[in-house]
Nucleic acid binder design. Structure first.
Lengths: 146, 146
DNA sequence: TTTGAATAGTTGCACAAACAACTATATGCC
DNA sequence: GGCATATAGTTGTTTGTGCAACTATTCAAA
């Protein structure tokens, strides 16, 4: 009976993602305070577009681990905020390529700075090697279930 | 500059809670397949009521790390499903004490069995001591931010 | 004892997630 | 070429979340 030391009480907070919820709320508050008018979910999409523009909505689904309707609506809202533009692909007219506006490009530095800050606050008092273990465990969990 | 080894790419999945999302989806599928007509969020409320009945909505807020409106609506829906009942407290009429119906009591064993199963699947190949480290890190993160 | 603050819960609104059903375009096989 | 199938994206519905504003009840202090 493997991993049975993992008792129910702790199981619960694993499933509900208490820690990641706390991080997300902290980051959202930082965005609000700084006057960055975006949600964490919108940020998570922008994050991938900052790394590479012009990817498809399907690419964003894979990158953010969301389904297609979720991405459709996130892109809808980002378009309303004038942060991204849908551009129909020349080669394959089913595909929308998503591009950043200048406004979104300007956000990158501040948003990523606040994200870094949040992570640093979250990890105060945690030795680097323990963070690495945690990261690896979470990756295995993800791989086991995906 | 502490914890700077925690690079942005990994930060991202920490914040979005990729692992806990994957666990929650797997458990939800198990509920659906087994014909348990409840959501993960409803389960997380029932989980605390199975431990102790008759607690207040505010207690459920603290236990589940949710705000009051979220609990109001979760209890609304659980009441519609005939799984819980609100009972006004005798001592303090502001308080709703939440009690389980017989139907909800019957769900406990099966639901917790499926939750255990999910956790075991998630943690295949992860040595117990690494699970412990992960748990501790997530607890510190939570404490740092709450 | 009355009044002001704190606490418990509810409601409205905007945003997001999961699922199913749908449209449009592309691909592959006969 | 034409048809079945796969892929990309959209829309509708239900559920949940976070914030602000609200009601009702309790508590505490002048």
């Amino acid at each position: 009976m493997p991993n049975n030391q993992f008792k129910k009480g702790e199981l619960y907070s694993f499933i509900t993602g208490k820690a990641s919820t706390a991080i997300a709320r902290r980051l959202q508050k930082k965005f609000n305070t700084a006057g960055l008018n975006i949600t964490i979910e919108q940020w998570s999409v922008l994050y991938h577009l900052w790394k590479q523009e012009g990817i498809s909505q399907q690419d964003l689904c894979n990158a953010t681990f969301r389904d297609k309707p979720s991405i459709t609506r996130l892109v809808d809202n980002l378009e309303k905020l004038n942060l991204v533009k849908r551009v129909a692909s020349e080669n394959d007219r089913r595909i929308n390529q998503i591009y950043l506006t200048k406004q979104a490009q300007k956000l990158q530095e501040e948003a990523m700075q606040l994200a870094d800050e949040t992570l640093n606050e979250a990890l105060i008092g945690v030795p680097p090697e323990r963070v690495d273990v945690c990261k690896e465990v979470l990756q295995i969990v993800y791989d086991n279930l995906k």
